[in-house]
Structure formats: structure tokens, C-alpha cells
């Protein structure tokens, strides 16, 4: 358009990546200022790990249980608990969006050159970082509890990639739900109604080959189980590298699809305001 006036204060727009880093920093500052949330988030996996680890110790002796005599139940359970922590934390990621929408913060961002991708990316990045730190704590506690992981540091590194992908997937889902409903209550739905069934329709706490067929089938289509499979294979020393790459690929594709949907949810939010 013919806009001679616009040149007076034109400035270089900050790139999406820089914006993502800046907004991730904001999320981190917010998070650090409410340490209770992070501690609570770690308390639950400790309970899973120590309680379930003891309670179901002998399921490993069931004939046909994955790994058999080579693996203790604590070793079997640890990747499951790592992923439960990641999924459970990221399910609340939309909270920031809800708070920003309750105030005028979201509207201010959307009326500025801030990209929607950066807003979403920052939420995904922060929850991925948080979940990776928590995963290391969970693995450390399991190690103290006697679990040993032949995969070593390479195994832990691959596990962290899966943790980050699973966190991004659920952070994007939670963000999309937040944008569509603008209600914190809806996030409780994501966290309670969705994540609990996903946990049990997987190999997180029990070998699905010993469960009814339909559970084993459901687990194959469950992104949470993909992440558990990657982490378990990686920690146990990459007996089946094909399964690791396949499930990492599936997770990455799911993250891309969900991030795309969440970006579309910004449009729905704009229509509603």
C-alpha cells in the first residue's frame, strides 16, 4: 500500500526463534517463582516409583513377562514413570495461556509482532526442559533404589529425546484445549480423563502381552506408549534399535500434527474475541 508514514519507526522484527527463546525465559521465570508446582510434580512419580515398585515387584515373575529374569520390576517400571511425569506435567501447559487470556496479556501478544508459533513453541520448550530435568531425577532415584540400566548415558540421552517429544505433544494439546475453551477446568479434563487411561493402556506398569488383546492393540496406537517403548529400549541397551527409531519417528510426527492444530486454535480464539 502507499504508506509513506510507516517508515518512521520501522524496526527489524525479532525472529520467531528469538521470540521463542525470550518467551521460554518468561515461562522459566514464572515456573521458578512457584517452586511448589515443580516439587508437587516430582512427588507423584516418587510415589509411583517407590509404591508401585514395591507393590507389584513379583509381577515380573509371571511367565512370559517382558525381559524375564534379567530385569527387576523397578527397572521395568522406571521408563514408564519417567513418561508419566512428562505427560502429567505437560497436560497443564495450557494454564499459561488461560492466565494470559484471563488478563489482556494474550491479546497484547497477538496485537504485536509476536508470532503464534513462538507463543506455542515457548510453552512446549519449557515443559520439555522441565520434564527432562525431572526424568533425570526419577532415573537417579531408581538407580539409588537398585535399578541398573545397561543402556548407560546414550540410553539416557535417547530417553530424554522421547521425554521432550512427549512433553511437546501434550503441551501442544493442552495449549490447543486452552485456546479453544479458555477455561482452566477443561485442562483438568485433559489431565484426569485423558492421561490416566493412556497410562494404563500402555506398557508403563504392566507388559501388555499379558493383558487382554484389546489393551495390547490400544497400546500400539498410544503415543504415550511409543515414548515408554523408546525409553525402555534405550535404557535396556538398544536390543531392538528399529523399534526405537520407529517410535521416535511416530512421536515426532504426532508433535508436528498437534503443533499445527494448536496453531489453528489461535484462529478459533481470535474469532471468539
Amino acid at each position: 500500500m502507499s504508506t509513506p508514514t510507516s517508515t518512521t519507526t520501522s524496526m527489524p522484527a525479532t525472529g520467531t526463534l528469538t521470540q521463542t527463546v525470550l518467551l521460554t525465559g518468561r515461562q522459566a521465570r514464572q515456573g521458578m517463582r512457584i517452586p511448589v508446582f515443580m516439587v508437587m510434580n516430582l512427588l507423584q512419580p516418587m510415589i509411583w516409583l517407590l509404591l508401585f515398585g514395591q507393590l507389584f515387584r513379583s509381577v515380573i515373575e509371571i511367565p512370559g513377562f517382558a525381559g524375564g529374569a534379567d530385569v527387576t520390576y523397578l527397572e521395568y517400571l522406571t521408563p514408564g514413570v519417567v513418561m508419566m511425569t512428562a505427560m502429567g506435567g505437560a497436560a497443564w501447559a495450557g494454564t499459561t495461556f488461560v492466565q494470559d487470556m484471563d488478563r489482556g496479556v494474550m491479546d497484547r501478544f497477538l496485537a504485536s509482532p509476536t508470532s503464534r508459533g513462538a507463543l506455542l513453541g515457548a510453552t512446549m520448550a519449557w515443559y520439555a526442559l522441565l520434564a527432562c530435568a525431572q526424568a533425570l531425577v526419577v532415573v537417579g532415584v531408581a538407580w539409588v533404589g537398585g535399578a541398573r540400566f545397561p543402556g548407560g548415558w546414550p540410553g539416557i540421552a535417547v530417553m530424554l529425546v522421547a521425554v521432550a517429544l512427549l512433553s511437546c505433544l501434550f503441551a501442544a494439546l493442552s495449549g490447543a484445549v486452552a485456546l479453544l475453551t479458555r477455561q482452566q477446568e477443561a485442562l483438568i479434563g485433559v489431565s484426569q480423563l485423558l492421561t490416566i487411561p493412556l497410562m494404563f493402556l500402555s506398557s508403563a506398569v504392566m507388559d501388555p502381552s499379558l493383558a487382554p488383546d484389546w489393551i495390547a492393540t490400544a497400546a500400539r496406537f498410544n503415543p504415550f506408549d511409543w515414548a515408554v517403548v523408546v525409553a525402555r529400549e534405550a535404557l535396556q541397551g538398544f536390543a531392538d534399535p528399529g523399534a526405537v527409531w520407529l517410535h521416535l519417528g511416530l512421536l515426532a510426527a504426532a508433535v508436528a500434527a498437534m503443533a499445527g492444530l494448536a496453531t489453528l486454535a489461535f484462529r478459533a480464539y481470535r474469532r471468539a474475541i
Partner: peptide, 25 residues
């Protein structure tokens, strides 16, 4: 400047301003 507050209550005044400035380029 929306009708509702446009600042982040869990950030300091300075952090709010610096972040806004950087997002603006």
C-alpha cells in the same frame, strides 16, 4: 492497552517492559 491488565503478574515491572520491547524488535 486492553481493558484488562496486559502485564504478567508473576514478572517484575522491568521484566515485563524488557520482554515487551524485545518482542517488538
Amino acid at each position: 492497552v486492553a481493558q484488562r491488565p496486559v502485564t504478567d503478574p508473576m514478572g517484575t515491572g522491568r521484566e515485563n517492559l524488557v520482554l515487551a520491547g524485545r518482542l517488538q524488535g
